[in-house]
Amino acid sequence: MLGKMWENSPNTAGRLMNKNLIAVLFTPLLLLLVIYPLVALLLNLELQGIIKTVQDRLFWDSVKNTVLAALVAAALGVLLAIGFGFLHLFLRESLLYRIANLMNDLPIALPHTVAGLALLLAFGRKTFGFVGPTGLAFTVTAVVLAMFFVSYPLAARAVASAVDRMDLETIDVARTLGDSPTKAYIRIALPSLGEALFSGFVLAFARSLGEFAAVIMFGGNVPGSTQVLASYVFTKVEEGELAMAVTASAFCVLLSLSLVCGLSLGRRRLA
């Protein structure tokens, strides 16, 4: 009997491997590289660290700064993405569109420290000295601008890909009924882009929540003022307060997970 099993097994194993090869490779890699680090973080949570962090006013200040700045950055991102959607629909041959499209890819390829430095030079003391001793740098506005710079492309891409899926003949018909391109975009295209605008907002918001390098370069890391969750974690690690850093990190994970769930639910409702 054993001999018979052995005889059959190479074929069975071969079939199984062919059928499930990807699953067989994917599952351990997912567990090891994505899920395990998050579990390791959560397993290092300590009650004392949680209590200390929850009682730290600077932690709540950083949460407030992060959420508010990310909300404003995402809203700005969606506004600009609406403009990009218009170019994508009506002016795809223009130089302006080509530049805007290139700029959508740049922040993804660019190190965010470089983005932060660019913002610092553009809006810092030398050029914007008239608004304050450091220009816009190291203010909450700087945090918003840094978050916006790295998150806007996600909103723009969401809108552009929804424009590509639209029934473009509705726009053609609207034009023959007297709509200028702007009117057709506002009256016909935008109402059908609801899901994309929502997705773009949530993606930009989520990206902004996690931004560190551009924020620290341009907004700084001033506790209670421009410190965000990512820089709070960094500071706590530097200070040797690992338990507090782990608590703040776990809070970030929960926040991100609830955002992702919210996005999925919202999409289903809008679909």
């Binding site: 029934d167 003949e169 018909v173 609207a174 034009r175 023959t176 200028s180 059908s192």
Partner: peptide, 20 residues
């Protein structure tokens, strides 16, 4: 002239109604 200035009625192959 742009389509909005031609006073042309256009009925496409698929009705392309404003679905909302």
């Amino acid at each position: 002239l742009a389509p909005e200035d031609r006073q042309v009625g256009y009925v496409p192959q698929h009705p392309a109604l404003f679905r909302t």
